[in-house]
Write a protein that binds this DNA or RNA. Structure first.
Lengths: 226, 226
DNA sequence: TCGTTAACCTGACAGCGTCAACCTGAGTTC
DNA sequence: GAACTCAGGTTGACGCTGTCAGGTTAACGA
């Protein structure tokens, strides 16, 4: 809550303030644990600057919040890149677990960017990049002939499963979650991966209501059809 | 945006205003498509009443919004109850698809109740009830011996998968989604159900990074282990 | 030394959630 | 039918928010 008035930047270095504002906002966010603490006045005071000065570098409060949250997504991009190479399915699993760990490590930023009315009418570029990496991992699995179908569609399914788990963990912590989050995530990744790999091997010719039951029969998971 | 001043309720019928406020708020929500339109002033004006009168029946703006969103969740409870009976896996599949359809039909209410910092530090009772139904459906499947494990944990996994898909559909409509949402949901339900049923049949003795690959080998989905 | 202009500030606006205090009139009582 | 009561509201204000038009200051080139 420091208020030491910032010394004005020298000519040509006005963009420095942008970084300082982002830094101040980031600190406020992690300290308070909620984006409600991101008041323009609070951010500006923290940066030692008057409130409207924020508008010199951000068109909007929305733009500021989005910029703050986008900062940590670069980190996720690196994690995704690291998970490449070796067995495609090992890489894919690592990818999913890294994603979940990232989301749980930055719950506020994750919520703001992924669980909101879609800020700016378009996929956040950072998220799009990560999704692209994910599609690449899936494509590598498809190339082995084990996974079948369009990589993009398959990736959406896997993404959905992991996102569902972490977003529920973040937004509904009071649910009866198991204590070991890491194991839960690992289980979800296995479930989604195995399901995605096997479901495409059963032709879809039944009414939706019968499909799941038929799938199980096809893999001999049930002793006798109901 | 009607403003006709409401005639004061008669003695003993003060609770009528609560219903009228809820109704006004519900209309505003569906008309605007976002909870930002739920201003206490706008709601009160719509109900033909002064702003602070809302506090006669709701402790908080948060309480009002929550009450508005909770109204439609009863409908989901009915849907879950209807999906009972018959083949347990057919019922489970119907359950998942009904849940998804509900979420997509009421995106704002779904987002407010499921994709927020957990309003009120606890599971929303309506959501808890629905989750209870879900656990029952899963338990019926476990009783057949096909699904293995704790019903509650299994239900969490299935819930996660479906929630992930619909919450992404709601919050990130710009993603490259397939056009047929119904088919997408059906696919996710199959994927999750099949994965959940089969993943428990492989003992978990490996480091997490190898698990998914090993699962696939166990089901002969890969010609040769990497 | 002076003028230019990038960098930033002052003061104000409307709208928000919320609260303390006041009013009003339907229903009861005498 | 007049007086009383208290449920069922209203009035007016407070501090907070995002945002904007216009003024100020000081670093630099000439």
């Amino acid at each position: 809550m420091t208020t030491a008035r910032r010394v004005r930047a020298r000519r040509g270095e006005g963009a420095l303030l942008r970084e300082e504002i982002l830094r101040a906002a980031e600190d406020l966010l992690t300290e308070a644990g909620t984006e409600d603490a991101l008041t323009l006045r609070a951010v500006a005071m923290r940066a030692g600057v008057s409130t409207p000065s924020v508008y010199l570098h951000f068109t909007d409060k929305e733009a500021l919040v989005e910029a703050v949250c986008l900062r940590v997504w670069d980190e996720l991009g690196r994690l995704f890149a690291e998970s490449s190479g070796g067995d495609p399915f090992v890489a894919l699993g690592n990818c999913g677990r890294a994603y979940a760990r990232f989301a749980l490590d930055h719950p506020v930023q994750y919520r703001v960017l992924m669980m909101r009315p879609s800020a700016g009418e378009g996929v956040p570029p950072a998220a799009a990049t990560c999704f692209g990496h994910m599609v690449d991992r899936v494509a590598a699995c498809v190339a082995t002939g084990v996974l079948q179908g369009e990589p993009e569609a398959l990736a959406l399914g896997l993404w959905s499963a992991v996102h569902g788990c972490v977003s529920l963990l973040i937004a509904q912590p009071s649910f009866p979650w198991p204590e070991d989050r890491e194991a839960l995530i690992a289980h979800i990744v296995r479930m989604a991966g195995l399901g995605a790999a096997l479901v495409t091997r059963v032709p879809r010719t039944l009414p939706p209501s019968m499909e799941l039951a038929a799938d199980l029969d096809a893999f001999g998971a049930r002793p006798a059809a109901g």
